[in-house]
Lab assay of single mutants.
Amino acid sequence: KAKLLVLLYAFVATDADTICIGYHANNSTDTVDTILEKNVAVTHSVNLLEDSHNGKLCKLKGIAPLQLGKCNITGWLLGNPECDSLLPARSWSYIVETPNSENGACYPGDLIDYEELREQLSSVSSLERFEIFPKESSWPNHTFNGVTVSCSHRGKSSFYRNLLWLTKKGDSYPKLTNSYVNNKGKEVLVLWGVHHPSSSDEQQSLYSNGNAYVSVASSNYNRRFTPEIAARPKVRDQHGRMNYYWTLLEPGDTIIFEATGNLIAPWYAFALSRGFESGIITSNASMHECNTKCQTPQGAINSNLPFQNIHPVTIGECPKYVRSTKLRMVTGLRNIPSIQYRGLFGAIAGFIEGGWTGMIDGWYGYHHQNEQGSGYAADQKSTQNAINGITNKVNSVIEKMNTQFTAVGKEFNNLEKRMENLNKKVDDGFLDIWTYNAELLVLLENERTLDFHDLNVKNLYEKVKSQLKNNAKEIGNGCFEFYHKCDNECMESVRNGTYDYPKYSEESKLNR
């Protein structure tokens, strides 16, 4: 008799109507990190870190770059004969040098303040090359056809396309004075040089004057150069050297050249137009028929994500570079809930034993079982409120962090190594801060989002509990077992918050 009662009780308990509160689960393989956990499985997430590029040089917003090819900045601007293909260059979106560009200054020497000139050019998007001192009329008392084997072109001695090597005419090199007034309405880049012979005999042979000088002056520039005559090792078949100089001439300003020898005179100059998204990159990537809004030396990035880990040097509207390998923000729920887990921000989770793959029309909802059958029903209101809140948060985070910009490298010469090392340390410090901030932001927001979901499920549970009161009992896994019969209409009233407690209280009292 006792065995019969136990079996009867078990049958009745199993047959009781139930309603459970749960949440969506799926077959997603997404994982995120939080402050407290690593690799948390979630139903949905968004990636904030771009880690792919196309490996190509592309047009930037429809404008092609200027590819210097086998030449570098120095060779292009001075007019190395091997860089003749660059003479027609007028406009570009950015400038590309190759790491091993070999054609710079063909006659050995240095372009002074080269690093600063590169910085200036990094904001130039177009130029006009014009004859600042016409070759045939500007130097009537001097020979202007100086050439050298060091600047050979097609097997013949030649010289820079933008400079003139002035030497004596006959047996004399009379003092020369020439000036140019900038009437271009924009900055003009003027380049010139000073020749330093290897011996007094060479000085006399070329310029006749043993104590020659070169003077260059404008409103913002004033220097006097004296040739340094000295024996030097042979470089590119030359014992002599040429140093090259430049200045930016403001609109309306005048530049005056005065010399008694050794002047490498300007022939062509450049009127410059600035462009905020221009820059110089060093890259071996090849040019393709493609378009982008962000270019790196590795390749083009076409992404609206706020961060990238491809390269710190970028041109155009680019994500911020960070050292992170993963920045994924959760938008959905835990896919593998932890039992009795309390989140960092106070939300209680884990009283549900598992997510439901059968509930596909919402994030949170119900599963019921009664004599009429069983089924899932999503709670659309709480789901939609959660979707709206999380979507707004993700968009806000992306908008705040998605300050796209150009980031170019800084140039230092060989004598500025300590400054370069200090600059690298400062840049590394800023990069570490950006990386830390980005990672911390994602970790915190992921923790908040998961706790937010847990709290929403808990609130749904409490909503049902407050309606049923003692007409049902909690069975410990997020479910309630009714003390009365609850048909589909009754189940719907529980879900929509209109459950009639008094209607079922007498039946429940008897069954309790």
Rank of each mutant, 00 (worst) to 15 (best):
Y94T: 08
P81A: 06
S205A: 12
N39D: 08
P88N: 12
I63V: 15
S215F: 14
V96Y: 05
D113S: 14
G79A: 12
E128W: 03
N27Q: 05
T143Y: 04
G193Y: 01
T260N: 14
V181K: 08
V149L: 12
N162V: 02
A259W: 10
K59F: 11
Y268W: 14
I73K: 00
A217R: 03
S152E: 13
L166K: 00
G185D: 14
L36A: 09
P65L: 02
D171N: 12
I280H: 01
E250L: 13
L206Q: 04
E131Q: 12
E128M: 14
R118H: 14
N211G: 11
T260R: 04
S138L: 04
G210Q: 04
S101H: 03
D110A: 15
G146T: 09
N182I: 02
D171H: 08
T18A: 00
F276H: 11
W192R: 01
P174W: 11
L5Q: 14
F270K: 13
P266Y: 01
T177K: 09
D253Y: 01
W139H: 09
Q67N: 05
G146S: 09
V190E: 01
Y9V: 08
T31M: 09
P174C: 02
S126A: 12
N80F: 00
K61E: 13
D17G: 15
K234P: 12
D253V: 00
V214K: 04
E136V: 11
I132Q: 03
A89Q: 08
S125Q: 11
T247M: 14
T31C: 07
F257Y: 13
L121T: 05
L191K: 00
N209Q: 10
V12I: 14
G62P: 01
Y94L: 06
A41S: 00
K135C: 08
Y221V: 11
Y244Q: 03
T34R: 03
T226N: 07
V235P: 01
G75A: 14
A269G: 15
T282N: 12
L86Q: 09
V216K: 03
E97G: 10
L68F: 04
C151L: 10
A231G: 08
S138Y: 03
L48H: 08
W92G: 06
T14C: 15
S179G: 11
A25P: 02
K169D: 12
Q238S: 05
W267E: 13
Y94M: 04
S172Q: 06
V147F: 05
C20T: 04
T143W: 02
D33P: 11
S205T: 14
D84R: 01
C71R: 06
E115L: 03
G155D: 15
D171G: 06
Q204Y: 10
K135R: 10
V12Y: 09
G104D: 10
K156C: 03
T226V: 13
V181M: 13
L189G: 01
E131P: 15
I281W: 01
L166M: 00
V235N: 09
S45H: 14
N183S: 15
K56G: 09
N209W: 03
S123M: 13
